[in-house]
Design a protein around this nucleic acid. Sequence first.
DNA 1: AAACCGGGGGC
DNA 2: GCCCCAGGTTT
Length: 341
Amino acid sequence: MNKKNSYFFAEKIIDWYTEQKRNLPWRNTKDPYKVWLSEIILQQTRVAQGLPYYNRFVENFPTVRSLAEAKEQDVLRLWQGLGYYSRARNLHKCAKVVVASGGTFPDNFLDLRKLPGVGDYTAAAIASFCFDEAVPVVDGNVYRVLARVFNIDVPIQTPKARQTFFDKAKQEMPVEQAATFNQAIMEFGALQCVFKNPDCEKCVLKKKCEAWQHQRVEQLPVKEKKSKTRNRYFYYLVKKKGKAIYMKQRIEKDIWHGLYDFELVETEKEKKEKELVAKYNPQKISKVYKHLLSHQTIYARFMLTSNVNKPQGKAYTLKQIEALPKPRLILQYLQDEEILE
DNA sequence: AAACCGGGGGC
DNA sequence: GCCCCAGGTTT
């Protein structure tokens, strides 16, 4: 069953990879720490965005031990701007777990899988890249490439899909070249078999690609779910004293857990400024924390309305706050406050 | 199985 | 605007 007569897919894609791959720092090492670090950073994150973070992390925390000994706030601060902050918290937690159990990473898929923040994909990546274990990685690229080349139309968000694509990848994977095969298929998905407008004319798999033959490239992979979104309306009440701006850590169980923002009023629907001003007297909001500017503040947000799954507005580091143009609503409160003082 | 968690970018 | 990205955890 695992024996195959033809590895045309693997051969083509590995040849392509050998010629076309990008030179990325985590590909020049088999150090599980660095591979793990890169994989966590690159979850749901493009290489171009993650690369500078990877370099900063390696520089600041050259070993898993140094990362484990760091303060969580410092880890989070280095993560600033990457999003999905649970990744950073799990990163730190995982480093501690590894150090507590001797300072070396597990050397196989099943044990790697037990680490915090390490799921099927990441465990497979580390196991294959570092230890040549013949376990396929299944990520968004793999879904897309396999779905097209082999015309697989199982909707990718269903439970069945994971198994289907895992089995197919396993079937196509030459056991002796597991690591290269895994990297090749993902790189192929990232550079050639891209989601939109792939340049199929110059694809090395053109003659073999079933989606291309059936003119179904744009329809694969099949994704049927549309996650519902809802709007949330946040009205920030910024308080200022001298050069200090009052901010508050979000400790409640909600979005942006552990990050910092201003006092806010959340409303069901969009409200008029006047109503808010009348209802929430700025004098009662809070006092100014003098130590704010020396605090390890991670993030601040100016955001008048927000879509939970897709926040609008920008995030700023504390240093940038002072230079920000003030949104109109917030400016209103600042003026009120200046009168107070 | 579904919800939750971000920020950046392509088009 | 919509959808994607080298996913994992929680409920």
